[in-house]
Nucleic acid binder design. Sequence first.
DNA 1: AAAAGTACTTTGAATTACAAAGTTATAAAA
DNA 2: TTTTATAACTTTGTAATTCAAAGTACTTTT
Lengths: 96, 96
Amino acid sequence: MLEQFDKAFESRIRLQIMSVLAANESYDFSSLKELLEVTDGNLASHLKALEKEAYIAVNKSFVGRKPNTRYVATEDGIEAFKRHLKSLEKLIKQQK
Amino acid sequence: MLEQFDKAFESRIRLQIMSVLAANESYDFSSLKELLEVTDGNLASHLKALEKEAYIAVNKSFVGRKPNTRYVATEDGIEAFKRHLKSLEKLIKQQK
DNA sequence: AAAAGTACTTTGAATTACAAAGTTATAAAA
DNA sequence: TTTTATAACTTTGTAATTCAAAGTACTTTT
């Protein structure tokens, strides 16, 4: 029982953020906010936590003249996320 | 993205406790403590959290003359746990 | 009688989560 | 041109969570 769960993903919101970024390769702040139904402050802090681990990176630009902040998962992030899911999968399989 | 993750399982330790109890139908305090490598105080509090949700139940008895506290997952607990794992599985499958 | 084991509870500190409000910068509307 | 709106935060403050460490009660072994 020495699964290596990643503390950074022990949160529904961060788990979902990574899930979205692993599947979409880039997603912007507003869309993420709508998708996850969280306040902007809350989302920002979870994003920052993942950024601190270097699991995601930020890309700021302008679309038209509006600021647009896009997030992408880093390679490290994808790897860590997959490792975490593997652990979860293993735990799930033990149930069957 | 309206997965219904269960807050009670958003913790590596509680996730593992439920995993053990779903697979073993009963497990005692000391063995659980060794398996999960946690302090007894910490384990007790996680167990209590699961008990509060009625996801596990306690069974105190004596083995020889030694007190033996066994934990079992309740039906509700198993159900909630399975639901949670389904959500996780769904999230994992989205990745593939 | 002293030491050790079981299963806790209590205490306290540190971290985390979250909502709400405030901030900065640009942009569209009146 | 003053107001209003939007994006993406940051700050503030509170509440909840986590955990180790110490303490407790009871029993058993030495």
